[in-house]
Design a protein around this nucleic acid. Sequence first.
DNA 1: TGTACATCAGTGAACGCGCGTTCACTGATGTAC
DNA 2: TGTACATCAGTGAACGCGCGTTCACTGATGTAC
Lengths: 191, 191
Amino acid sequence: MGHSQAEKAENRERVLKAAAAQIREGGLESVSVGKIMQAVNLTHGGFYGHFASRSDLLAQALERALVDGEGGARAQAAAPGRPKGIAGFVRSYLSRAHRDARDRGCAISALVSDVARADEQSREVMAKHVEGYIGAMKHGLGNDDADAIFAVCAMVGALAISRVIPDANRSDQVLKAVKDKVIAMAPEPDA
Amino acid sequence: MGHSQAEKAENRERVLKAAAAQIREGGLESVSVGKIMQAVNLTHGGFYGHFASRSDLLAQALERALVDGEGGARAQAAAPGRPKGIAGFVRSYLSRAHRDARDRGCAISALVSDVARADEQSREVMAKHVEGYIGAMKHGLGNDDADAIFAVCAMVGALAISRVIPDANRSDQVLKAVKDKVIAMAPEPDA
DNA sequence: TGTACATCAGTGAACGCGCGTTCACTGATGTAC
DNA sequence: TGTACATCAGTGAACGCGCGTTCACTGATGTAC
């Protein structure tokens, strides 16, 4: 077990990645220094060589979770065999797969109500990503800001609510209803 | 300071009410037995005369928060001088006042992402209230289930997202965009 | 290329703290007579 | 209506536990020569 500088960077990255996943899986407060370090096979003492405090980790992991979530959605929509453009993105965002993979999915949906009560810095970080999301939808929806806001709120709300509903069929219905409505908003609706 | 049976029931009620508000203000995990008892001017030891455990309180307080949130929205929409019907309800739900009063507002919006990762019993409790909400919107939206689902997701999403955005103007825009779009969905749109 | 040593990533014991929960106790309540 | 006593709502000290954080230490890394 070596402790080279390259390994340090790698370990820091693993801690951050694990925290970003844990945040989406269990919320900001579910992150504990001991458990995260254990998850990456290190002891808790070493943590402070990487981050100034738990709260420092949380701030960075939130940003990371938001970035990861975006990447995942884009990658899935761009996968071969998937419909392109906005309809493809909406379909993958409101898919059962996305609903059932909270720790790898959109961090906005996974953490909206948590971040709504967090400090201003955290809210600012998420708000920036919300704007990015609105911007992307706007591009696919005839450049109308109000339409894009409406679509983003409905999609984030639908994904979050679908995760609350224990009945699988009803949860599917929520995803499908919003998926159809948002796709219908696009200027050139396709099958 | 007497300890009559009537006072016991009253104290239990105060604890439950305080917990329901605290849950909406700070999330399920923010409720601590000691702090809640202190908030109602009692000592922590007496807590277990009212509830079996912290988790028992949480379950009951979640239900209470959901019921309180519904009552508040209905009351505000029915207040004198307010537009009646669905437009009035949507306006008060997506108002700045509602956004800024998290501890007294809709518990669905305040707790969606928290409850999404809670146990099945909690999710079932919130799901029941989501259905009630969908049913109410359905009534005002030409009895179309998909329309009602779409509107509820957009409204819950909009309120939650508006609380994330630190910039007051932009936050207002989100509320306004969704408010206008949902009101436009009603069969007989009014001013 | 090889040796000597300073650096520093990671270890694990220890700390103080707040938490949920328990329990022996107190004294007002409310009931039996 | 008045007295005697059992009940029980609320008190506050004590508990074990997990947490975030600190720190003296270890031993591989990587650099100076």
